[in-house]
Nucleic acid binder design. Structure first.
Lengths: 337, 337
DNA sequence: TTGACAAGCTTAAACGCGTAACCTAGCTTA
DNA sequence: TAAGCTAGGTTACGCGTTTAAGCTTGTCAA
C-alpha cells in the first residue's frame, strides 16, 4: 500500500511494529499508573515510537478524554505594547508548565455569538478575550460548551452580570499614582489626555478617573481637566494649540508613553519648556521614555509573579470557579519630566 | 442521566431530537452537494441545531476528514513591532477568507525537534516559524507529518537545504535604500548600527550588507563602517562616545527606529546637532519617528496585497509546493534627519 | 498429581464526534 | 415489470484512551 501523502505515525503503526496491541502502546507512552508492563516491552515500544517519529494526535486524544489542554487568547484590536507581549509570554510559559497550551486566536474582528461559535469550535478549556468581544449571548454559548471565560478589562458589575472571570489592570490606580506624583511635584493645573475612539476608551476613562480622584483627594486645591486626543501628531498639535488659548496646564498625564511622546513633540514645537513650564507623565515605561529628550517620567504596571497567575487561572478553570485577577501593581518611574 | 458538567450538543443530540439520522444532520449542516434532502427536513434540522446552540467540534471533523484548517504561526522571541502585528492581522484575515484559521503559538522558546513535536501534535496544515526555531531534524519531522513549513527570514541556501518554503523581507534592499538616501544627501562617512545578540543578528547583517553595497556602488568614495550596539541607552551613549574618539560619522543608519531613537538621544546628549552634523535614518517608520525632535527619517517595508499573500500561501500548502515569498518593497519616508 | 486460584501481562472492544461510501424501502415512470 | 428516483438510514472509519476481559505461569491445598 503506497500512500502518496506522508502520513504521521499512529499508535497502531507502533503497535504493529512492536508486536503489541495499541492499548499497550498507549499505556507505555502515557506512563499510565496501574498498568503492569515489563521493562523490556516498555523499551521496545519506546524505541519503535522514536524510530517512527511518533507524535501523538492532540485532538484525537482530547476527543477521547473529553478534556482540552487549550486556552484560547483572543487578541485585541489594539496593537500590543511590550507590556502585553511580555505578559502573554509569561502566561503562556506558566500555562505550559501546568500542561496547558496557550494559543492566540488573532485578527477576527467579529464579536458576540459569531465569535463565540468560532472559539467554541476548538473546544478549548478557557477563552481569554477582551471585554469588547463578549456579549451575554456569546458568553452563554461558551458556558453551554463548558468553556471558562476570562474577560479582560471588564468592570465588576458587567462581569457579575455575565458570570465570567476577569483579568484586569487597575487603570484607576495607575492614574491615581500619576496624579499623586504630579500634585506632589507642585503642579496645580493638571491636564489628562484621554484617547478618542472606542478601542482605548474604557482604559482612558479609568485612568482619568484615577488622576481626578487623586488630585481632588490631595486637597491642595489643584484642578484637573480632561482632553480627548487621537493617536496622531496632528491631534497632539491641535491639543497643544487649544492650550495656547485656554491657558497652558502645568502638569500633564498623557494617557500612556506613546500619547505622551506625541504631546511632548507638540509642546516642544510650540516652544514650551518641559519640564520647567509643564510636567509630563506617561504610562507603561517603554523604551521610548529613554529615547525622548527630556526623558519621560512614566507610571507602569509592575507585574507580579506570572507563574502564580497561570496557576490561579488553571485552578479557576478546573474548579469552574469565578475569579477576578488583577496581577499588577502600579509603579512610578521618575525621569526628567 | 444527569450530567454535572454541561456538555456541548453533538450531531447525535440533534439527530435524536429532529428524528433523523446523524448522517442527515451532517449533510444538512454542511450543505453537502449531492445530498437529496427535502426542504422541510433541512429546516427542522437547522432549527434544532440553533435551539441546542450546536457548534461543530473542529477536531472531530478534522480527525475524520484527515484535513486541517489550522495554520500555526510561531511567534518570534523579539517583541513584535506594529509592522509585524499588522502583517499578521492581514494574513490571519486573508487565510480566514480561504477557510483557514491562523493560530499563534506563543512563547515557547524551544526549537528544533522538541518544538516541532509540539507543533505537529496539533496536526496543522502549515507552520510559519522563525528560521531560528527550525532545525533540519525538526523540519524532517514536520515533513513526515505532511505539514508544510514556512521559514521566516531564511536565506535561500538554507531553505533549499531543508526544503522549506520561505517568507522573507528584503532587508538587504531596505539597507540599500537607506544607504542610497544617505549618499544622495551628501554624506561621506556612514556608520551602520548592527544589533548585538542573536535575535536580530541576521537582519542586522543583511541591512548592513545592503547599506555597504549601496554606498560602494554609488561611487562617490564614501566610506561605511559597522558598529554593534545593544538596545539600551547606555550602549547608545557608549557608541556615541566611541565616535567622539574615532571621529563622528556624518551619516548614520540606526538599524531601525528604536535603535535610532536611542542613538539620537545619545547624540543630543553629546551636544551633536542633528541633522546638521549627522544625518540619521531609521527603519520601520513607526509613530516614534514623529514623536522625536528632530523627526526621524525612516525606511520601511511597504506591504503588498496581503490577501494575495494569503492566497499564495494556501496554494503552496495545497499543492505541497515550495514557494518563496517576499511580499514587501522598501520605501523611504523622509523627515528632518 | 490435580484442581483452584492468584498474579502478571496483554488485548479486544467500546467510545468520543463527525464524515462519507454504500444500502434500502417505497414510489413513480417507461 | 424493470429501472430510476426520493429520502433518507447503516455502517465503517479516523486516532487514542480505557474498561473489562482474556491467557499464561506459578503457587498451594487436597
Amino acid at each position: 500500500m503506497t500512500s502518496i501523502r506522508p502520513r504521521p505515525a499512529t499508535i497502531t503503526d507502533i503497535a504493529r511494529r512492536a508486536g503489541v496491541s495499541t492499548a499497550t502502546v498507549s499505556y507505555v507512552l502515557n506512563d499510565a499508573p496501574g498498568a503492569r508492563i515489563p521493562q523490556a516491552t516498555r523499551e521496545r515500544v519506546r524505541s519503535v515510537a522514536d524510530e517512527l517519529g511518533y507524535v501523538p494526535h492532540a485532538s484525537a486524544r482530547s476527543l477521547r478524554t473529553g478534556t482540552s489542554d487549550l486556552v484560547l487568547h483572543v487578541q485585541m484590536d489594539v496593537v500590543q505594547g511590550p507590556l502585553a507581549s511580555r505578559f502573554l509570554h509569561d502566561l503562556s510559559h506558566g500555562l505550559r508548565e501546568l500542561g496547558y497550551t496557550l494559543l492566540q486566536y488573532g485578527a477576527e474582528r467579529s464579536r458576540g455569538v459569531k465569535a463565540a461559535r468560532a472559539w467554541a469550535a476548538m473546544r478549548p478549556s478557557a477563552v481569554v478575550a477582551g471585554d469588547d468581544r463578549l456579549t451575554p449571548a456569546g458568553v452563554e454559548l461558551l458556558r453551554k460548551a463548558d468553556i471558562h471565560v476570562f474577560a479582560v478589562g471588564t468592570p465588576p458589575e458587567r462581569a457579575k452580570e455575565m458570570g465570567v472571570s476577569t483579568l484586569t489592570m487597575d487603570h484607576r490606580g495607575l492614574g491615581a499614582l500619576a496624579g499623586e506624583h504630579l500634585v506632589g511635584r507642585g503642579h496645580r493645573d493638571i491636564a489628562v489626555v484621554v484617547p478618542r475612539g472606542d478601542a482605548l476608551r474604557r482604559m482612558g476613562e479609568q485612568r482619568w478617573e484615577g488622576v481626578r480622584s487623586a488630585v481632588e483627594q490631595a486637597g491642595t486645591g489643584a484642578s484637573v481637566r480632561r482632553h480627548e486626543m487621537d493617536w496622531t501628531p496632528e491631534s497632539a498639535a491641535e491639543l497643544v494649540g487649544t492650550w495656547g488659548e485656554e491657558g497652558l496646564p502645568d502638569g500633564v498625564f498623557g494617557y500612556n508613553d506613546e500619547f505622551s511622546g506625541l504631546v511632548l513633540g507638540a509642546l516642544l514645537d510650540a516652544g514650551v519648556r518641559v519640564p520647567e513650564q509643564v510636567g509630563l507623565v506617561g504610562a507603561d515605561d517603554v523604551m521610548l521614555c529613554r529615547m525622548l529628550r527630556p526623558r519621560l517620567t512614566s507610571v507602569r504596571m509592575g507585574s507580579e509573579d506570572p507563574a502564580d497567575t497561570a496557576r490561579r487561572i488553571v485552578e479557576a478553570v478546573r474548579d469552574r470557579a469565578e475569579v477576578h485577577l488583577s496581577p499588577w501593581t502600579p509603579v512610578l518611574v521618575e525621569r526628567d519630566t
